[in-house]
Write a protein that binds this DNA or RNA. Structure first.
Length: 403
RNA sequence: GUGGGAUUAGCUCAGUUGGUUAGAGCACUGGUUUGUGGUGCCGGGGGUCGCGGGUUCGAAUCCCGUAUCCCACCCCA
């Protein structure tokens, strides 16, 4: 038997219901905030991700589905959504057009990781990107949008917040952190040694207890922000306060992708295991420029749909539509005709086999129909049928023409 | 990529120190004596015990390999 590849799942039946319910809910919220749908290719030039996500990240360093295509192009399946949207934004010259551009997207992402609960090799994200606004109000807008989507899906969360600084304050901070960690280099874990070269900020969220105890006195980014970043962060907290969004400051929160600056946030759930981040995002004012566009401030987020699907509170399924059953073989033709007519407006379930009344009732329950009609010789002779309302236990006799 | 646990029917799981024809519940299917309320009752189909080797008179059971899932790390949404 041929099986799906490792870490790649089919979505069907109840999973599909949850999946589309989430997409529809999130789409609805995004549209209310004035965002427009964008679809970008699953396959992009590898350089796009190397330059945006950053070669230092594991995503680019070892998790990409990368290959040379028949035209000798170095391409890869997208590991995340932002880079493609930014590429499209620049390619359509919207950076030069100026103004505000707001997009949302959803679709498959690919990362060659070891699969685990909440971590697949092909997974789905819903994401949002906003271009052209440097006001921190837009950062808050993003966070409130995520909160709205989660609330609409009945999902509880914790919001973690940090500021990563900008080109003014981040480099100096990074240097002082490297200096600090270098001094206790002999005592930190191997991973942290590796991080020191690759992405020093990441040592801050090392899970090793010994490392954490060493870093207690490490310089904190949040205490080393320049005035502009400091002001924005203060303002952001105030906006969230006045809009009743609860958050916790996590000075160790760093984003895995290199392009983030200033606002960084992560929504986490305590109910889905160790892969607990259900949404993450932040500001990336320099990315458009990195990808050869005109400098454009931007902010966005992405949500992991598979992780959210476990948490979604689905609305109760209501009885819907008709079930029409035949009592004998002669009635089946009429059942099919009536179903065709009714399907112009309603969902109709039928079977192509005659059954007794009791078995039809079982079928009515199975398909969760609201109305039940039975067709036999009596109905064919009289030209009338009885429509039973299963919920209210009432019934109505009408002619076949009226049906 | 590292370490650990699991894998038996469509699903959730039993299966004794290795010993007849591998079971249950749910689901599916048929009947319940032939046209008015489904939940009852009786029956039926369905398994290469993940896959491949090995040990043994005999393997779902023990050993080795491998695949997948799960847990932790790592990473991240």
């Amino acid at each position: 038997m041929i099986k799906s590849l490792r870490g790649m799942n089919d979505i069907l039946s109840e999973d599909y219901e949850r999946f589309t319910y989430f997409i529809n809910t999130a789409t609805h919220v995004a549209q209310k905030y004035g965002f427009h749908f964008i679809e970008t290719p699953l396959l992009e030039e590898t350089a796009l991700f190397k330059r945006s996500v950053g070669a230092s990240s594991d995503i680019v360093g070892k998790e990409m589905y990368q290959f040379i295509d028949k035209g000798k192009n170095d391409v890869c399946l997208r590991p995340e959504g932002t880079a493609g949207v930014v590429r499209a934004f620049i390619q359509k010259k919207l950076d030069k057009a100026g103004g505000v551009h707001r997009f949302f997207y959803h679709g498959s992402m690919f990362r060659y990781e070891r699969p685990q609960k909440g971590r697949l090799r092909q997974f789905h994200q819903f994401g949002v990107e906003s271009f052209g606004i440097d006001s921190v109000y837009e950062d808050a807008n993003m966070i409130m949008m995520v909160a709205d989507i989660l609330v609409a899906c009945g999902i509880g969360y914790r919001l973690q917040l940090n500021s990563l600084g900008d080109a003014n304050c981040m480099p100096a901070y990074r240097e002082s952190l490297v200096h600090f960690v270098t001094q206790c280099k002999d005592e930190v874990c191997e991973d942290c040694i590796r991080r020191l070269d690759l992405n020093p900020i990441r040592v801050l969220d090392c899970k090793n207890e010994k490392c954490q105890s060493l870093y207690v006195n490490a310089p904190k980014l949040i205490n080393n922000l320049c005035q502009a970043c400091e002001n924005d962060f203060t303002k952001l907290k105030q906006i969230l306060d006045t809009n009743n969004i609860n958050y916790e400051i996590d000075t160790n929160l760093v984003r895995g992708l290199d392009y983030y600056s200033k606002t960084a946030f992560e929504f986490v759930s305590d109910n889905i295991g160790s892969q607990s981040a259900i949404a993450g995002g932040g500001r990336y004012d320099r990315l458009v420029e990195f990808l050869d566009g005109r400098p454009t401030p931007a902010v966005g987020f992405a949500m992991g749909i598979e992780r959210l699907m476990e948490l979604i509170q689905m609305p109760e399924v209501k009885k819907e539509g008709y079930y029409i059953g035949a009592l004998d073989e002669d009635a089946i033709d009429l059942v099919v005709q009536l179903a065709q007519k009714k399907r112009k407006t309603d969902k109709v379930n039928i079977e192509y086999k005659a059954k007794n009344f009791k078995n039809h009732m079982k079928a009515v329950d199975k398909v969760n129909a609201k109305y039940f009609c039975i067709i036999g010789s009596n109905e064919i002779q009289s030209g009338t049928i009885i429509v039973k309302d299963i919920e209210n236990k009432t019934e109505e006799k009408i002619t076949i023409q009226e049906f």
